[in-house]
Simulated assay, not measured.
Amino acid sequence: MADFDTFAGTLLEESKRFLEKAAENKNDDAAHAAYLHASLNLAFASAEAHINAVAEELASHTEFSAPHDKGVLLEKEVRLDNGEFKLKGDRFYPLEERVMFIHRRVTSQPLDKKTQWWSDLGSAIKLRNKLTHPKDEAPVIRAKDVAAALTAVIECIDAIYRAVYKKPFPAAKRMLQSKLTF
């Protein structure tokens, strides 16, 4: 698991570095846009990777042994097979649903959806979807929106870490500052 955690962290650092590179290339429209696109997509790749790592770990605990729990955590379809529930094939859940599920199952409390990061995460997902599934015209992706998206992703991961591990997400203290220098 440690190697996968390192990979998830690397994706986050790459996202932050591409946001920095976008700022360094403000005068080159093509480079600026490309760096923003890369930053936004990597932010969500990192979010998914972090949530998957936490979910995989939780799925190994006995309190999450019910097929429906494992189905959500491991993104598997739950079906009846010979009178019992079994995991079959893939079934992907929206990131927000998995975050809410993990939070509620671990804390027994619903996630506070009135927090700023939750609202910003919803906006970030819409922005990512405009980039990933463009319709009619190319989306306008602005640096401030990517910064807000990346911040929301970091705060989302932090909220899950605080719920599951009872401590902050280590990378949260650096927020948008990358450790990378490429």
Rank of each mutant, 00 (worst) to 15 (best):
E97S: 08
K130Y: 05
K135P: 00
S108A: 13
R105P: 04
A143I: 09
P139D: 05
D112V: 06
M100D: 05
A143T: 02
E96V: 08
H133T: 11
I125L: 11
K126C: 06
A143D: 02
L111A: 05
H103Q: 03
D136G: 07
L121K: 03
K126S: 10
R128T: 04
S123L: 08
K113R: 14
I102Q: 00
T107K: 10
H103A: 03
D145C: 00
H103I: 08
S123C: 03
H133V: 11
H133F: 11
K135A: 10
A149F: 04
Q109D: 05
K114G: 14
R98W: 01
D120K: 14
R128H: 05
K130R: 13
A148I: 07
R98H: 01
F101D: 11
K135R: 13
K113N: 09
K144L: 14
H103Y: 15
R104V: 09
Q116A: 12
H133M: 06
K135L: 15
R98V: 13
S123W: 07
R128M: 00
R128P: 02
I125N: 03
E97C: 02
E96H: 04
H133L: 07
W118Q: 06
K114M: 12
W118Y: 15
L127A: 12
V140H: 03
S108Y: 03
A124R: 02
H133C: 12
G122P: 02
L111N: 06
S123M: 04
I102K: 00
D145S: 07
Q116P: 01
L131S: 09
W118C: 12
S108F: 10
T107H: 06
S108M: 05
A138R: 07
W117H: 14
A138Y: 08
W118G: 07
D120W: 08
L121I: 00
A138Q: 10
T107G: 06
Q116Y: 00
K135Y: 11
A124L: 02
P110W: 02
E96R: 14
A138L: 14
D120H: 09
W117D: 06
K113D: 03
L111Q: 04
M100L: 10
D145K: 11
S119A: 14
E137I: 12
A124K: 01
L131Y: 09
F101E: 11
T151K: 15
D120L: 08
I102W: 00
S119C: 00
K126T: 13
L121Q: 08
M100N: 02
D136L: 12
A138S: 10
D112L: 05
V140I: 15
R104G: 10
K144D: 15
A138N: 07
L127C: 08
D136H: 11
E96G: 06
N129D: 14
K135H: 10
G122I: 02
A124H: 03
K130A: 08
L111G: 09
E96S: 13
A124C: 09
T107N: 01
W118I: 11
T115D: 08
I125Y: 02
K144F: 12
L127W: 04
W117Y: 15
L121T: 03
S119T: 15
R104W: 03
